[in-house]
Design a protein around this nucleic acid. Sequence first.
DNA 1: ACCGTTCGTCGAAGCGCTTCGACACAGGCG
DNA 2: CGCCTGTGTCGAAGCGCTTCGACGAACGGT
Lengths: 352, 352
Amino acid sequence: MSGSRGRPSPEQPTIADVARHAGVAVSTVSYVLSGKRAISEVTRNRVLASIRLLGYHPHAGARALASRRANVIALVLPLRAGMQVPVVMQFAMAVVTTARRFDHDVLLVTSDEGPAGLRRVAATALVDGVLVMDVELDDARVPLLRELARPGVLIGLPADATGLTCVDLDFHRAGWACVAHLAGLGHRRVALLGAPAAVYDRGTGFAHRTRAGVVEAAAGHGVDAVTLPCEESAVAVRRTLTDLLERHPDVSGLIVQNEAAVDPVLATLPTLGRRVPRDVSVVAVCPDRFAEQAHPMLTAVPVPAEEIGTRAVSLLMGKLDGEAVPEVTLLPPRLTVRDSTAAPAATAKADR
Amino acid sequence: MSGSRGRPSPEQPTIADVARHAGVAVSTVSYVLSGKRAISEVTRNRVLASIRLLGYHPHAGARALASRRANVIALVLPLRAGMQVPVVMQFAMAVVTTARRFDHDVLLVTSDEGPAGLRRVAATALVDGVLVMDVELDDARVPLLRELARPGVLIGLPADATGLTCVDLDFHRAGWACVAHLAGLGHRRVALLGAPAAVYDRGTGFAHRTRAGVVEAAAGHGVDAVTLPCEESAVAVRRTLTDLLERHPDVSGLIVQNEAAVDPVLATLPTLGRRVPRDVSVVAVCPDRFAEQAHPMLTAVPVPAEEIGTRAVSLLMGKLDGEAVPEVTLLPPRLTVRDSTAAPAATAKADR
DNA sequence: ACCGTTCGTCGAAGCGCTTCGACACAGGCG
DNA sequence: CGCCTGTGTCGAAGCGCTTCGACGAACGGT
């Protein structure tokens, strides 16, 4: 009846329609929805019934205008070469899911729009806050983020984090933990197969921090460590690996921080006469999923993409609510021992 | 002067500030910005100067409220298991980039929110239109999309596309083209290594369409075709492949439609005593990037993720402007011959 | 010289919502 | 019994923008 006459197209009902239908003031409906003032049980129910009946949904733009809150956050994603695509996806997934739990939506901004994109979405009040991934040590967006009127959270750790909010895995300690594990097993010579060279070149924090952790831990444990970048294709992995083992045949522990390289590494090693873990131990820094479906299952320090994403959103929501939040949140690495590491063959029995 | 006294914090300037500063009416500023009415050169310049000087950015919410256009589109992404993650990323990338060219932003909605998410963003006028990926043959969102007040475009092809707008690669012809190529080379027995079983089970269009194309083409060319699903891990690939070649040792042509499986397949074949392309020819259905960095480089039907994304956005923009657009847009497959296919060994010389 | 156009600009009326102050009413207190 | 304090509700004033109708000025045709 309501749609058949007088209103040819069933326009979205407005809050005024709801108020009229429920016999209350517009403001009352608003307060029912926001809960910012006490409303009697009976009135609330009447209003809610009308809302349901009319299929009312508040207009996001109007709400944003009046409340100065868009309930949208921006997610700045690195959609470019050399990225660990599945990890990025996991982040995005966790971010969207968590944001929804806080009743927020997520606007996707690509980092190739650069700082301009950030400025735009912030200045137009399209979003209330900003989440930035793939932060470089000396990132152009960092100063911008500091001057922006809207709060932001970084996933990753720039060189100077003062005045910011950052979340990340503690890659430094992750690198350290890998070496410590291998050293504890008796390995004296290890190698880090890292991210693609481009990632180091543009100063991406996690790559550098892991490498530093590996190097320092090696020194601390009296272990020799070679570190080298590694491209993502199977061919490149094979080349890098062949090269490495030719130059350093006594490397018995391999740390792989490149999810795309994990499978090729495991496939290549046997063809070079190295069995895992008998001849070479492999420990990976990658999402648990990869470590578990590899063969053999990999000893690994998982990158907790989910948790980082969730934490980042929670921190951002905190800032939006005016809470004070820590500048740097580094999640402690947890090394999970699986089937790809063992004591080196030569020292296997001498060890204990 | 305007910001130093009376206004402690430098709030965003509004259109009224600009109008005042330029000595014109608010509406004039609006018309300068939208170009919907003629404005004299001199006035326009004065206004633009003020805008730049004050650093004015229109408030997205206010604009959306008044113009009934949010300039945002929703992208519904499948962030779930068994997805071809890199392809999805390529889509997302192309969508965001193209949307920006049309002066729109992209709201990220995960498909695990299901139809409810779609309904929410559409009903609240958060977005003007909707892009849905990973469409299943019998998708719950399809009827919703039809009844929604906002236009939508599907990436993929449901069983019934009437009243919708869909874009996709013509996977049916892609499958056909692969078989035709192999048959032309003289192969009499081919196999399709498809998507993971779960993808077929939930009725994902592209997987079924490719398979149908392969089967029909095989019949048409008098070729035997085996089709089987294939999981994504290297181990699973090896198992599937070993099995296949044991059961059908005379298979000399392999069609791989699973970007994650491409590398493992190439790595495994030699270990089973099959060299590529001498013993087995391989043709892939995957993004060109993968085909080119494989070793040997793969004869392939590329999935033009970029172009599909771009087309989808263009179509959506067309619908937003009230244009009539075609219901189904299927991009023709183009098979690129590279180094992974050749005439089968047995018939190599008899062929010509 | 007059009228009809076109051009450039203005004012005002919303768009749909939130929020502030006001107010009516009901109890509890002294 | 009057006063005060909560409760629950309402009305109205914006939030910053777009858009419609109006209007003065400049201009060409007759």
